[in-house]
């Protein structure tokens, strides 16, 4: 296997992602749909960038292209100084394997296998031995605080736990960039906050994060917001007052854990009745 060296940060403001005039055109019969229409964008190392836009604005298409899951119809894309359009499918797969970690709205875990084996999945394709895989996967699960759930299958986990497994999978090969496509879209707001706190922590630890979302309060956890509309960039701004998910969560938690327990005790009349209910 040919190794693609990890992107090295040469200068402080070196763009890790550099796209120029990217278009993506879908054909549906005679109709031509421009999902992306001349998008140019630079993303530097150690950024936390949120791509916003209504549904159909092309934000997921943009994400898929910079995440090397799809190829643009035209335009140039340099990832860590390398022209992606010149890479073979094999090399693209290696880029996805080693430089990119993906987190999806629908988690995209394999249902048949345990959390640990889901996390191990990228390592299988990088040729690690079973022993090394297990060690790295356990470390990644520890980073997302899910060590105790390693042997559970996805359907035995809650939505937030599944997303954390997916994040552990994205992290496990120590990628240069973390992509997240509506990572909180399928979660309740409290769990979503948990996930955002995790992303902020990872960012503080040095990860570059690109996130797609249509919710402003989620986007505000990032450092930079890009607005997309009809396949074009309509705004690119720095976030002035960044939301700190951990803080919000703490203030919520203080209030509600106690309340919740009291409420549960009040509304659980007897053990037998509750069992009948379920």
């Amino acid at each position: 296997m040919k190794m693609i060296p990890k992107i090295v940060q040469a200068g402080k403001n070196l763009a890790i992602i550099d796209i120029k005039d990217i278009s993506k055109i879908y054909r549906m019969g005679d109709i031509e749909v421009r999902a992306l229409d001349g998008v140019s964008l630079e993303i530097s190392d150690h950024e936390f960038i949120c791509v916003m836009g209504a549904s159909g604005s092309g934000k997921s298409t943009l994400m898929n292209i910079i995440g090397c899951l799809d190829r643009p119809s035209s335009g140039s894309y340099f990832l860590g100084g390398k022209d992606v359009s010149k890479l073979t499918d094999q090399e693209l797969a290696e880029v996805r394997n080693r430089q990119i970690g993906f987190v999806f709205q629908t988690f995209n875990l394999l249902p048949r296998i345990s959390a640990r084996r889901n996390v191990e999945l990228p390592l299988i394709y990088s040729g690690y031995s079973a022993k090394e895989r297990r060690k790295l996967a356990d470390e990644a699960l520890e980073r997302v605080e899910l060590s105790d759930r390693a042997d559970h299958k996805p359907n035995e986990l809650s939505g937030g736990q599944r997303q954390r497994v997916a994040i552990a999978r994205a992290l496990v090969n120590n990628p240069s960039i973390l992509f997240a496509d509506e990572p909180t879209g399928n979660l309740d707001s409290r769990t979503g906050l948990n996930i955002m706190a995790l992303f902020q922590r990872l960012h503080n630890q040095g990860s570059t994060i690109v996130m797609v979302t249509h919710e402003m309060d989620i986007a505000l956890h990032g450092k930079r917001i890009i607005h997309l509309r009809d396949g074009r960039i309509h705004g690119d701004e720095k976030v002035k007052s960044r939301a700190d998910a951990e803080l919000i969560l703490n203030s919520l938690a203080d209030l509600s854990t106690q309340d919740l327990e009291e409420a549960m005790q009040r509304h659980t009349p007897a053990k037998g009745a509750a069992d009948e209910d379920s």
Binding site: L69, Q90, A93, N97, L110, N173
Partner: peptide
């Protein structure tokens, strides 16, 4: 197909 997509997204090549 979805599984294939997931595997490719985390780095599986066509030959894998």
């Amino acid at each position: 197909t979805r599984e294939i997509g997931i595997r490719m997204a985390v780095g599986a090549t066509r030959s894998d």
